[in-house]
Design a protein around this nucleic acid. Structure first.
Length: 651
RNA sequence: GCCUACGUAGCUCAGUGGUAGAGCACUUCCUUGGUAAGGAAGAGGUCGCCGGUUCAAUCCCGGCCGUAGGCUCCA
C-alpha cells in the first residue's frame, strides 16, 4: 500500500498508509482528540471523519466544540431523535430534520401528537441508542435505488424529496442500526459521540412550510460536546426569559393588555407614557434638524384611497374590515403613506419645494393573524415613527443616505450594535403579482440604492424576493431576548405609488415630473421599539428614558419634611422624581428602588437634612457619598440632555 | 389562521368532585431604623367566559375567549 502525506491546519505534515480515515489520524495524534472528533474537512470540503483518505490531503479535524463540528453534532442528534421516534412510533413518517443555530429539529408525520411527557420518553430512548454506540455509515445511491429504498421502508416524504432533488446531484443515505435517513451529511462516526443533549419543545409545522399542506409534529432539541456547554446554553435560555419584554414590561408597569379591550391592542401605563414622550421628543429634535415638517392625519379613510394605493388589493385580509359610513366603506388606516401622499398633493409643488419631507407618529391598525401576536413586538395597533420624503431623482442619493445616517445616529444614542442591515430586492419572477410590473424601474431603483449605500459606506446584505410591492427596501433586523427576529427599522424606496396618486412637481425647465418617495421608520413603532428597548437594556433604561429618574429615600420619618422639599425641588428642575414615604427601614426602601430599577437613589438622613446635602446611590455603582443638591441636579440634567448610556453591570 | 400546552388574589404560584390557600405587593398599627427584606393585624377571588355531566363542578366533558411555544404571514 502506498503512503500519503496529510497536512494539518498548523501546516505540519504526517505520513500515513493510503486509506487512513480522519478519525484514525486523530487517534494517532491523541485519544482525546479522536474521542472528540465528530467530522473533518478534507481539502476544504466538510466530510465524515470515517471517509478513507486515498491521496495527499489537507485535513482539518472538527471537534463538537468548533462551529462546523457543532453543526454536525446537532444534525446527527436530529437523526438520533428520528431513530428514537421511529422506534417508539413505528407508524410515523420522517420528513426533514436540520440543524439550526444552537438547536436542531425534526418534523414527523405521526398519528396523534407528541406531548411533553413523550419528550422524556424520546430522550430516554435516545440515551439508550447513543449508549449502543452504533456505527453511522454513509452510502451513495442512484436515484432509483434511493427511491426504491425509501419506498420499501414506507417513507413517502423521503421519496417526495428524492423526486425533487436535482438529477445531477449525488444522493446519499446514512445508516445507524436499523435506521436509515436520506441525508447529505456529514455525520458523527457513531451514535456514542452524542452525549449531552436535551429535547426542548414540540410544535406543529406545515410540511414544506406551506399552510395548505399537512401539519406535522416538530420536536426541537439541542446538543453540545460537553455537559458544561449544554448547561451554559440552558442557563442562557433561562436568563433570556428574564429579559423578555413581556415579563419586564409587566414588572416595570410599562404596558398591559386587557381581554375586554382586545388582543394585540396594548394599553400604555403611565411609565410607558413617559418613554413614549421621550422618544417623540428625540424624533422631533432630529427630524427638525434634518428638515422634516410635522403633519397629522386621521385614523380613517375611505376605501377608495387604498384601492388607489394598491394596499386593499394586496393586504385586505390583514386590514380591519370596512365600516359602512353613509353607505361608503371606510377603513382604519393600516399605514400612513396614502394620507401623506394627499398632504403632498394639497398644493402644487415646484422643484424648489423638494425634497418635501413630512413626518408623523401615525397610529395604524393591522389585523394581524391571532397566532402572530407577540407582546409589544407584534400588535394590532401601533404608532409608527413614519415619514415620507418626496424628491427628484437627482436628490435621491443624498436623501436616501441622510435617512441611513439618521438610523445610525439613533443606533448610537441607544447603543444598538447587534443588528443586520438588509437590502430587500424584487424577484423578477413575481413581477405583476407580488410586485408592481415595472421591470426597468425596479432595476434602476435597486441600482441607485446600492450605489447610494456603497457611497455612504453602509454595510448590508442583499435579500432577493423580499422587497415591498412598490420598491426595494432597507430593513434593520434585530432579535428579541428569546431569539425571535424582527424588523426594527425600515427604509423603502417607492417609484410607483406617487404616479398612481398623480403626484407631480414642476422642474427647472417647467416640465411636470413625478417625485420618488422614500418611506422611512427608523424608530419603528412605539410598540416594537419600546419592546426592543426593554430587552436591549434589560429594563435598566438610561436616565433620559427612565420613567422614574430619581427616588428620595428618607432614612427615617424624622427627615420626611426635608425629603418632601427635595422632591418638589427635583420636579421643578425637570427630574422625574418619586418619594418613598413608607415607614420602612432604609435597607427595605433601597431594595424596592433597586427592584424597580430606578437609576438614582437620593438618601437623606439627619446629617443631610442639617447640611442641606443628599447622599447619592446609583444603580450598578452604589454609594457615591454626600453632595450638594444643586450639584446633583446639574449632573442629572446634563445626563438627561445628553441622553447618556446607562451604567451597566459590566462597567 | 393552523398544531400543542396553559388560564386560581395586583404579581409569582400551591390545591381539591362537597363553593379555596401561600409568599410578595396593598391598608392600618407598632418600630425611627444609614445603603438590597423589622414586627403584627387587616383587606383582597363568581377559580377566564358559556354550556353539559352530577345530589353537588374551580376540579370531569364540550364550545368560546385569552396567553405561551412553534408553523405560516408581515405594506
Amino acid at each position: 500500500m502506498s503512503e500519503i502525506t496529510i497536512t494539518l491546519p498548523d501546516k505540519s505534515t504526517r505520513t500515513y498508509q493510503s486509506g487512513v480515515t480522519p478519525l484514525e489520524v486523530a487517534e494517532s495524534i491523541g485519544s482525546k482528540l479522536a474521542n472528540d472528533t465528530v467530522a473533518a474537512s478534507i481539502n476544504g470540503v466538510l466530510s465524515d471523519a470515517t471517509i478513507p483518505l486515498k491521496t495527499d490531503s489537507d485535513l482539518n479535524l472538527y471537534t463538537g466544540s468548533t462551529i462546523e463540528g457543532h453543526e454536525v453534532l446537532l444534525h446527527s442528534t436530529a437523526h438520533l431523535m428520528a431513530q428514537a421516534v421511529k422506534a417508539l412510533w413505528p407508524e410515523s413518517q420522517i420528513t426533514i430534520g436540520p440543524a439550526i443555530k444552537n438547536r436542531f429539529y425534526y418534523d414527523f408525520d405521526i398519528d396523534g401528537t407528541i406531548s411533553n411527557e413523550d419528550l422524556q420518553k424520546i430522550e430516554n430512548k435516545m440515551q439508550q441508542i447513543a449508549k449502543e454506540d452504533l456505527q453511522v455509515t454513509r452510502k451513495e445511491l442512484s436515484r432509483n435505488e434511493a427511491i426504491k429504498l425509501f419506498k420499501d421502508r414506507g417513507e413517502k416524504y423521503k421519496v417526495e424529496i428524492i423526486e425533487q432533488i436535482d438529477k445531477t446531484d449525488k444522493i446519499s443515505a446514512y445508516t445507524q442500526g436499523d435506521f436509515i435517513d436520506l441525508c447529505r451529511g456529514p455525520h458523527v462516526p457513531s451514535t456514542g459521540k452524542i452525549k449531552h443533549f436535551k429535547l426542548l419543545s414540540t410544535s406543529g409545522a406545515y410540511w414544506r412550510g406551506d399552510e395548505n399542506n399537512k401539519m406535522l409534529q416538530r420536536v426541537y432539541g439541542t446538543v453540545f460536546s460537553t455537559n458544561n456547554e449544554l448547561k451554559e446554553y440552558l442557563t442562557f435560555l433561562e436568563e433570556a426569559k428574564k429579559r423578555d419584554h413581556r415579563k419586564l414590561g409587566k414588572e416595570l408597569e410599562i404596558y398591559t393588555f386587557d381581554d375586554e379591550v382586545g388582543p394585540g391592542l396594548p394599553l400604555w401605563l403611565p411609565n410607558g407614557g413617559v418613554i413614549i414622550d421621550a422618544l417623540e421628543e428625540l424624533a422631533k429634535e432630529s427630524e427638525t434638524r434634518h428638515g422634516y415638517h410635522r403633519v397629522r392625519s386621521p385614523h380613517l379613510s375611505k376605501g377608495t384611497l387604498y384601492e388607489k394605493s394598491g394596499h386593499l388589493e394586496l393586504y385586505k385580509e390583514s386590514m380591519y374590515p370596512a365600516m359602512d359610513v353613509d353607505g361608503i366603506e371606510y377603513y382604519v388606516k393600516p399605514m400612513n403613506c396614502p394620507h401623506h401622499h394627499k398632504i403632498y398633493a394639497a398644493s402644487p409643488k415646484s422643484y424648489r419645494d423638494l425634497p418635501f419631507r413630512i413626518a408623523e407618529y401615525g397610529t395604524c391598525y393591522r389585523y394581524e393573524k391571532s397566532g402572530q401576536l407577540f407582546g409589544l413586538m407584534r400588535v394590532r395597533s401601533m404608532q409608527m415613527n413614519d415619514a415620507h420624503i418626496y424628491c427628484s431623482k437627482s436628490d435621491f442619493d443624498e436623501e436616501f443616505l441622510d435617512v441611513c445616517k439618521m438610523y445610525l445616529e439613533y443606533f448610537e444614542i441607544f447603543g444598538i450594535d447587534k443588528y443586520e442591515m438588509r437590502l430587500s430586492l424584487h424577484d423578477p419572477k413575481d413581477l405583476g403579482k407580488k410586485y408592481i410590473n415595472e421591470p426597468e424601474l425596479w432595476l434602476e431603483t435597486e441600482e441607485s440604492v446600492k450605489i447610494a449605500l456603497k457611497k455612504g459606506g453602509v454595510n448590508f446584505t442583499e435579500i432577493p424576493g423580499e422587497a415591498a410591492f412598490y420598491g426595494p427596501k432597507i430593513d434593520v433586523q434585530v432579535w428579541s431576548a428569546i431569539g425571535k427576529e424582527f424588523t426594527l427599522a425600515t427604509n423603502q424606496v417607492d417609484f410607483a405609488i406617487p404616479k398612481r396618486f398623480n403626484l407631480t412637481f414642476t422642474d427647472k425647465k417647467g416640465i411636470e415630473q413625478t417625485p420618488i418617495c422614500i418611506h422611512r421608520a427608523p424608530l419603528s413603532t412605539h410598540e416594537r421599539f419600546i419592546g426592543f428597548l426593554i430587552e436591549h437594556y434589560g429594563g435598566d433604561f438610561p436616565l433620559w428614558l427612565s420613567p422614574t429618574q430619581a427616588i428620595i429615600l428618607p432614612v427615617s420619618e424624622k427627615t420626611l419634611v426635608y425629603a418632601k422639599s427635595l422632591k418638589k425641588k427635583f420636579i421643578a428642575a425637570g427630574i422625574r422624581t418619586k418619594l418613598d414615604e413608607r415607614p420602612e427601614k432604609i435597607g427595605a426602601k433601597i431594595r424596592q428602588a433597586e427592584i424597580n430599577k430606578i437609576p438614582v437613589m437620593v438618601i437623606v438622613g439627619e446629617k443631610e437634612a442639617a447640611e442641606k446635602t443628599v447622599s447619592v446611590r446609583r444603580r450598578f455603582i452604589g454609594d457615591q457619598g454626600s453632595i450638594k443638591v444643586a450639584q446633583l441636579l446639574k449632573t442629572l440634567n446634563n445626563e438627561h440632555k445628553q441622553r447618556s448610556q446607562p451604567y451597566r453591570e459590566s462597567q
